[in-house]
Structures are given as structure tokens and as C-alpha cells.
């Protein structure tokens, strides 16, 4: 018999609010990585030139893809950091169980993905602004973007980041379960690359997995795929953590 009855959702909300405040450092790294990404992007993504006797041309390409790559690394590593002991122990300040701790982590990582997605769009616009100031060059925007495309693109960016947080969370939990995974996981990744090269003379496994998402042209299917994959990764993480000892 308790005086107050606390529902799971209440605890999750409390923990989520706490995490929004205490994990602010995650946004420092977001900011720094975005600045690094913009600096890298300023060098251009590619280009070319050529000409004949009467004509010469020179072109440079720019895009926000490099910034996005940095953001994906950020999402992945941030999720790993959330699973480390110091961060998990923060949750013992609450009357809570493991499930609420995981749920609030997932909520927080989702929230971080949203912030990441929105700041990514703004950062790539800043990059565009920097390019606009390049003198004596004609500027081409590859395609005028419609509102629908903008909304789809933003959602897709957020979903990509969320997928990477899910992967990072899974990797982090595996490492918490057994430190041997620190060696096993990179070994598996690079081993699969090398094995592929030896067996099929090109490395395709990691690329093939990526293609499931990148090649999807239907937005709804893409959303479904990402959400399913993320849910699977989070579910496995929760399952793994159940076999962890308390305060381990």
C-alpha cells in the first residue's frame, strides 16, 4: 500500500525532463561537429573543368552531405555515451525501473535527433549562404525545393539520425553486457569488409545494408523501415540490459 501511485509514464516523463537538462553536453558536441562539417564542406564536394579553344569551364559542387555524415557519427557516438555506466547510474536518483530508464533514453535520443535534424537543415542553409558570397561565379541551385520535399527531407534526416542512435544504443548495450564486444564489433565490421573483398573482390555487405534505406524512394516505406529497424535495435538493447546486474 503506497500513498502515491506512480505510473510508468510519469516516471518516464520525469526522467526525460531530467535528461534534457543534464545531457546538455550532447548539444555541445552537436554544435562543434556541425561547425567542423561546415568547414569541411566549404572545400567543396567535387568539381571539374575543361575546355576547348573557344570555351572553358570550371565547376564546383557543394552540398550538406558532409555535415550530415558528421551528424550521423554524432548520433551514433552520443547514443553509445548514453549507455555508459556514469549515465545509467544517473537514473538511480529516481524511483524507477529499467524499462522507464530505457524509455526515457529513447525519448531523449529521439528528441536529440529532432534537434539534430532541424539544426542540420539550418546549417546546410548557412553553407549555401557562404557559397552565395563567392564572387565571380555563377550560382546554381540544383533543384528548387518544394515545401513537401522540404518536409520529407527534414523528417528523413531526423529518421536517419534516430536510426543511428538506435544502432549506437545497441552497440553501447552490447559493450556494457560484455567488454569483449569493444574488440569483437569493430573486428566483425572490418572483418566482413575484408572477407567480402577476398571472396567477392568487392566489399558489399555494409553497403547492401545501407542500400535498404538509401535506395528507398517511397517515403512511407522508408519511414516504416527505419522505425522497424530502430524498434528492433532498441528492443534488443532492452533485452540485453535485463541480463545486466543492478549497478553494473
Amino acid at each position: 500500500m503506497y500513498l502515491t501511485k506512480v505510473s510508468l509514464w510519469d516516471v518516464v516523463k520525469k526522467q526525460f525532463r531530467f535528461k534534457m537538462k543534464s545531457y546538455r553536453g550532447m548539444f555541445t558536441s552537436l554544435m562543434m561537429l556541425q561547425i567542423i562539417g561546415i568547414l569541411f564542406s566549404l572545400g567543396g564536394e567535387g568539381g571539374g573543368g575543361g575546355g576547348s579553344e573557344t570555351f572553358s569551364y570550371d565547376m564546383n559542387y557543394y552540398s550538406g552531405n558532409i555535415i550530415l555524415a558528421f551528424m550521423m557519427i554524432w548520433a551514433f557516438i552520443s547514443a553509445i555515451v548514453v549507455t555508459t555506466q556514469a549515465y545509467r547510474f544517473d537514473d538511480y536518483a529516481f524511483v524507477a525501473n529499467r524499462l522507464s530508464s530505457h524509455l526515457s533514453n529513447i525519448l531523449f535520443l529521439g528528441w536529440a535527433s529532432v534537434i539534430g535534424g532541424v539544426t542540420f537543415v539550418l546549417a546546410s542553409q548557412s553553407l549555401k549562404l557562404a557559397i552565395l558570397f563567392q564572387k565571380d561565379r555563377e550560382f546554381i541551385e540544383s533543384q528548387p525545393i518544394t515545401m513537401l520535399q522540404m518536409a520529407e527531407g527534414l523528417t528523413a534526416t531526423i529518421l536517419y539520425l534516430f536510426l543511428f542512435t538506435a544502432l549506437g544504443y545497441l552497440v553501447g548495450m552490447l559493450v556494457q553486457r560484455n567488454k569483449a564486444f569493444i574488440i569483437i564489433l569493430p573486428a566483425l565490421l572490418f572483418g566482413s569488409l575484408f572477407l567480402n573483398v577476398f571472396l567477392a573482390s568487392e566489399s558489399t555487405l555494409v553497403i547492401d545494408i545501407g542500400q535498404i534505406f538509401v535506395r528507398e524512394t517511397s517515403f512511407l516505406l522508408f519511414m516504416l523501415k527505419v522505425l522497424l529497424a530502430s524498434a528492433l535495435a532498441y528492443a534488443i538493447s532492452v533485452w540485453i540490459s535485463n541480463s545486466l546486474e543492478v549497478r553494473k
Binding site: 565547376m59 552531405n65 550530415l68 555563377e138 550560382f139 527531407g153 528523413a156
Partner: peptide
């Protein structure tokens, strides 16, 4: 002709 081209990041053109 000198030009710079700004391409939208891939999630924006994927669909």
C-alpha cells in the same frame, strides 16, 4: 563559364 552548384543533401532528393 565558372559556376558553383549547391546540391541538396541526399535525404532531400531521395523521395
Amino acid at each position: 563559364i565558372k559556376h558553383v552548384k549547391y546540391k541538396n543533401a541526399f535525404p532531400f532528393t531521395q523521395f
